[in-house]
Design a binder for these strands. Structure first.
Length: 586
DNA sequence: CCCCCGCAAGC
DNA sequence: AGCTTGCGGGG
């Protein structure tokens, strides 16, 4: 029975005794194991030959190494659906081979060199395949694994002229308080390995991974070598952390020299025929780990080179992290066209877009390249929201996105405001109702002034003191809206007007009502909201203005009477009163 | 792109 | 306090 998946054997550690330990040659041992295998598989149920595998599903990296039922598809046979099945169905769950070191941060572009063998469902081979499979397993070498990837972004490549130090590459999983370092680990059988020598060099991000002219500097990097050399005894510590690795960039004109130097050191991990350095990306590198094994018997062996995640130069605008610092406003009409100033980290004016997003809805902020100011500010106009009939504020995300690599910034929230926050007046009427009932409770003040953007009109110092008063501008806004309704007659408009809390407030103050001149004309000293209201009245009601003064006397008296009989206006809270001065007072 | 400089943290 | 070192801004 072939259950000794290589990783299992490796993790188990002592499953295979070293050949020399038992006085056997490699060949003897292979024979022995194959025989064992035959015997056992003879006793077990016959297994159908494995179906050919041709579909590589997404989490292939963990193939054959997890028994967790997963919603993720795994490597499956041709003609079958992706099934989250345990690759070792014969084993009880508890004895499933341990999962290999996980690499959550590893992206699809990163890989651990050419893999020796597939580890998918084809690791349960047919009888004939079993023999060769076993052969390979016995000769299995340990492998080098990047257990802590370098942080992809955040480190600046430094020129030699900027000082000896070029900083230290941090680990990807570290945090501000708990910093980590990139680390590798020797996994698998290490018996009879005397020493492991690891050479770290820089290679290009893209395949084929060619030597990169930039240099590694820092601890364990011999001066001028551009590479890092560490030797480790895996019996003491299988793991090695790189505590001080910096990336020193070379000038473009020294690119050739640097590559030649690397070649002289015989560093070309993937034996790429180094040609065409023109397209070399100077802003991104990968660490490449080459591992040489020294056996006790003096033999030497090399493991396949392993590369890390890419590491991007922080300084380079073409690859740097995108970041929105702030906007001058975070709210705007759902109709769009709101002009916004955004401050951001350096961007390329020809390689950047501003993305508005909510659910599946996407739209772009509108700007030209000339609207990008010195790479750190963008003046743009908001796109209209998908729904122009929103009645509530809608929060959407704004992100910066680089066109070339589709990299995005962290999102920030932008709020779309409805055209008319209350088209059916439900809220306003409810509010008026509650305002009236709250009159029993004097001094009902808003806890804080409403933000300026929430008002459709300029606010003033005094007006915002009382929440009831704050309702005025928006109520007025609605009325402007209403006034466009041809079905609404003058009386209705006036009724609406008189229903607004501000008017109530005014009317409910006896000292005020008595001093209101017959031709109600809010003077310049009254808050600008009132001035505004006046303007709006004149603009929107036009011809009705005359009638208003006529009606107002009647209505005012009515309301004042009604109001006073219902609830005498509390006088103990002058700070919340609108203080309207008449011309006489001035 | 390459280099310079200044600030601030750490010793 | 004075120096080194890391880091970011800027020309």
């Amino acid at each position: 029975m072939v259950l000794k998946d290589s990783s299992y054997a490796m993790k188990g550690g002592d499953i295979y005794k070293a050949p020399s330990e038992r006085g056997l040659t490699d060949f003897d041992l292979i024979q022995e194991i194959i025989k064992e295998d035959r015997d056992r598989s003879g006793a077990s149920l016959p297994r159908p030959p494995p179906p050919p595998v041709d579909l590589l599903c997404t989490n292939s990296e963990m193939l054959g190494q997890t028994c967790q039922p997963s919603s993720q598809p795994v490597l499956v046979a041709r003609g079958t659906a992706c099934q989250p099945t345990c690759p070792f169905p014969q084993l009880p769950q508890s004895s499933c081979p341990p999962r290999e070191m996980a690499h959550p941060s590893r992206g699809p572009s990163s890989h651990a060199g050419p893999s020796r063998r597939g580890r998918g469902s084809d690791s349960i081979p047919s009888q004939s395949q079993g023999d060769t499979e076993m052969l390979e397993r016995v000769l299995e070498k340990p492998k080098l694994v990047v257990v802590e990837e370098p942080k992809e972004r955040g480190m600046r490549f430094r020129y030699e002229c900027e000082g000896r130090s070029a900083g230290s590459i941090l680990g990807a999983s570290g945090t501000e308080t708990n910093k980590t370092q990139p680390a590798i680990e020797i996994q698998g059988p290490i018996d009879h390995i005397k020493k492991v020598t690891v050479t770290v060099s820089l290679v290009t991000k893209d395949l084929p991974h060619r030597p990169h002219p930039h240099c590694l500097v820092g601890k364990d990097c011999p001066n001028g070598s551009g590479i890092c050399l560490v030797t480790m005894n895996p019996h003491n510590n299988r793991r090695h952390s790189f505590s001080n690795l910096g990336i020193q960039c070379v000038r473009r004109k020294e690119l050739d020299v640097s590559l030649q130097k690397r070649r002289n050191q015989n560093i070309d991990p993937f034996k790429s025929h180094s040609k065409g350095i023109e397209d070399m990306d100077m802003n991104v590198v990968r660490l490449c780990f080459q591992c040489e094994l020294d056996w006790e018997d003096g033999r030497k062996d090399c493991l396949s080179p392993v590369v890390s995640n890419p590491i991007y130069d922080k300084k380079a605008t073409t690859t740097s992290q995108l970041k929105i610092s702030c906007l001058n406003q975070y709210r705007g009409s759902c109709a769009g066209k709101t002009e916004i100033y955004m401050l951001c980290d350096k961007v390329q004016k020809d390689d950047i877009e501003i993305l508005f997003r909510r659910g599946s809805w996407k739209a772009n902020g509108e700007f030209a390249q000339t609207d990008v100011h010195r790479q750190i500010a963008i003046v743009f106009k908001t796109p209209p929201y998908q729904d122009q009939d929103i009645t509530e504020e809608v929060d959407v995300n704004i992100l910066l996105r680089r066109l070339s690599d589709q990299m995005t910034s962290e999102p920030i929230t932008f709020t779309y405001l409805p055209h008319n926050p209350d088209p059916y007046e439900v809220k306003r009427k409810r509010k008026i109702k509650s305002d009236i009932s709250f009159r029993d409770k004097p001094c009902v003040t808003a806890e804080r002034p409403l933000p300026a953007e929430q008002s459709f009109f300029p606010q003033t110092q005094t007006m915002m003191q009382d929440e009831r008063l704050c309702a005025a501008p928006s109520a007025l806004g609605e009325m402007c809206y209403e006034s466009q309704d041809p079905n609404m007659d003058t009386d209705e408009i006036l009724n609406s007007l008189l229903e607004t809390p501000v008017i109530w407030e005014l009317l409910s103050d006896p000292t005020l009502t008595s001093s209101i001149p017959p031709n109600f004309d809010p003077g310049a000293d009254i808050s600008s909201s009132f001035a505004n209201m006046d303007v709006n009245l004149n603009q929107n009601f036009g011809a009705y203005t005359q009638d208003f003064s006529h009606y107002s006397d009647l209505q005012f008296n009515m309301l004042v009477n009604e109001n006073q009989t219902l609830q005498p206006e509390p006088q103990d809270c002058p700070s919340n009163m609108v203080h309207v001065k008449t011309e006489e007072e001035l």
